[in-house]
C-alpha cells in the first residue's frame, strides 16, 4: 500500500532525515590549507620596500608618460626638421633658456603654411647670396644669344 504524504511528514517529524547533500572527495582534508593560504594572502604585511614602491608608482608613471610625449615630439622634429629645431632652441635659449616640452609641442603643432614658407625662404636667400656676378653671366650666356645679352646690358 502506498504511503500518504501526511504520513510521510509525520514519520519525518519523529525521525529526522539527513539532508541529501554530499561534498567532493577529500574536500575537508584540503580545506585547512586553503583557508590558511587565503588568510596569508589577505593579511600579508606590506614591507617597507613595498610601501616605497607603492608611493612612487604614480610619480614614476607620470615621469614615464612625460618622457614618452617628449620622445614622440622631439624625435620627429630632430629627424625631419633639424634646422628648425636648432633655430628654435637657439631662440628659446637666448630668450627663455631651455625650451620646455610644452613649447616644443606647441611649436610642432602650430607650424602654419607661412612658417613653412619662412623656412624655405631662408634657404633661398642663402642661395642668392652665394651666386657671384660671373656665375650669373655664365647662366645668361647659356640661354641667350649675343644680341639679347647686348640688349639686356644696354
Amino acid at each position: 500500500m502506498m504511503r500518504k504524504n501526511t504520513d510521510i511528514w509525520d514519520e519525518l517529524q519523529n525521525e529526522p532525515l539527513e539532508p541529501p547533500f554530499r561534498v567532493p572527495e577529500g574536500y575537508f582534508d584540503t580545506l585547512d590549507d586553503r583557508i590558511e593560504s587565503r588568510i596569508e594572502e589577505e593579511f600579508q604585511p606590506v614591507s617597507q620596500k613595498g610601501k616605497v614602491i607603492r608611493m612612487l608608482k604614480p610619480l614614476l608613471g607620470m615621469a614615464a608618460s612625460f618622457a614618452l610625449v617628449f620622445l614622440l615630439v622631439y624625435y620627429p622634429l630632430s629627424v625631419y626638421l633639424p634646422d628648425y629645431l636648432a633655430k628654435s632652441t637657439d631662440k628659446s635659449e637666448t630668450n627663455q633658456g631651455i625650451a620646455s616640452e610644452e613649447d616644443l609641442l606647441y611649436s610642432y603643432f602650430s607650424i602654419s603654411s607661412n612658417s613653412v614658407y619662412d623656412l624655405f625662404a631662408n634657404d633661398e636667400i642663402a642661395t642668392e647670396e652665394e651666386i657671384s656676378s660671373d656665375e650669373m653671366l655664365d647662366y645668361l650666356t647659356l640661354s641667350m644669344n649675343e644680341a639679347e645679352i647686348y640688349a639686356e646690358l644696354k
Binding site: 510521510i8 519525518l12 532525515l17 539527513e18 539532508p19 541529501p20 547533500f21 554530499r22 561534498v23 567532493p24
Partner: peptide
Amino acid sequence: PYVDGDEIQYRLQ
C-alpha cells in the same frame, strides 16, 4: 551536482 539522496529527502528540501 552534490545534491542527491532519496526522493523523500529531496521533497523535504
